[in-house]
């Protein structure tokens, strides 16, 4: 499998350790990644709201780059996934829009033809590689109680993205179960983390996050697992803001799925990733660094 990795600005420039975890696990599943001079996807809410034509054309440029290189795109960020998928949907379903966009692309020597596919890394892991293969690669099952947050932009609009059930998603649950975790069902599982309005109105954004995390905390989780860097920042950095703003005492470690997968696979260098986290989960660090024999006892294979 060969993909152009679309890490997205948030991962590549703010959370490079997440990118690291993706590049760490990729070879183990025969995923070959290439890098292309992508711009921002662009961000699906603000940029599209500011100028939907700019949004569509920049998206088309990114798609055209992958098309030129003859590879499909694998996104690591839910926002990029939604943005590029929606651009592709608009371009493929409205020939007049495609024509307009290609007029602009022609100026920069590019053309969008409509041959490229946009995948999210969750789809690649779940659909192409499969739960069984992931389980086979798990060396040190991590048996913690997790709440998962799939992220708005992996789920909706369901009929375009087609990644999981938008109301009752189960695929990320299956993925975390594959590495030994218990996935806790909780209220407001498909609710937004509030990141979309963080730049517009902090009270609203963190108010939404408070609602979401209150629901999460009801089931007493040990970790949260996400598949979107924006949601990651929301939960990881945002919980401290919520604690200040609303007098809460959240202390919930947050992981991007491939980080915790890399840990469960026992890959070298995982410590350097996990040390970047602001909310530390000491048990996990210990687990990876030292307690290998105990784990071996726990797993027959």
């Amino acid at each position: 499998m060969r993909f152009a990795l679309f890490p997205g600005c948030t991962i590549s420039d703010r959370l490079p350790f997440i990118e690291k975890s993706i590049r760490m696990i990729a070879p183990h599943f025969n995923i070959e990644l290439i890098d292309l001079p992508f711009t921002c996807c662009p961000e699906p809410n603000s940029v599209r709201s500011f100028s939907d034509k700019t949004w569509l054309t920049m998206g088309a440029r990114n798609l055209a780059l992958a098309e030129e290189a003859g590879v499909n795109i694998m996104t690591a960020c839910a926002g990029c996934f939604e943005s590029l998928s929606m651009s592709k949907h608009v371009l493929d379903s409205k020939p007049s829009e495609k024509e307009e966009v290609n007029k602009v692309l022609k100026k920069i020597g590019k053309e969008y033809k409509g041959q490229v596919e946009v995948r999210h890394i969750q789809q690649v892991l779940y659909e192409d590689i499969g739960i069984e293969e992931i389980q086979r690669n798990v060396q040190y099952p991590i048996n913690y109680r997790a709440v998962i947050h799939p992220g708005c932009h992996t789920l909706r609009p369901q009929k375009i993205l087609n990644l999981d059930d938008a109301e009752a998603p189960m695929k990320l649950d299956e993925l975390v179960r594959a590495i030994g975790m218990e996935s806790l069902d909780y209220m407001d599982k498909v609710m937004c983390c509030g990141a979309g309005v963080r730049g517009i109105n902090r009270e609203i954004a963190f108010g939404v996050l408070r609602e979401k995390m209150d629901s999460m905390m009801m089931v007493d989780p040990e970790v949260a697992v996400v598949f979107c860097p924006t949601c990651f920042i929301s939960f990881e950095a945002g919980q401290k803001v919520v604690n200040r703003m609303f007098d809460k005492k959240y202390n919930l470690p947050v992981y991007y799925y491939t980080e915790i997968l890399a840990a469960a696979m026992g890959l070298e260098g995982v410590e350097s990733i996990l040390s970047e986290h602001r909310v530390k989960f000491s048990a996990l660090g210990m687990l990876v660094a030292k307690n290998e024999p105990e784990i071996e006892n726990a797993t027959p294979h």
Partner: peptide, 13 residues
């Protein structure tokens, strides 16, 4: 719009 279940009481919101 939606119905959510409280995890412990199984009451509904």
């Amino acid at each position: 719009g939606e119905i959510q279940e409280y995890p412990h009481t199984k009451n509904l919101r």
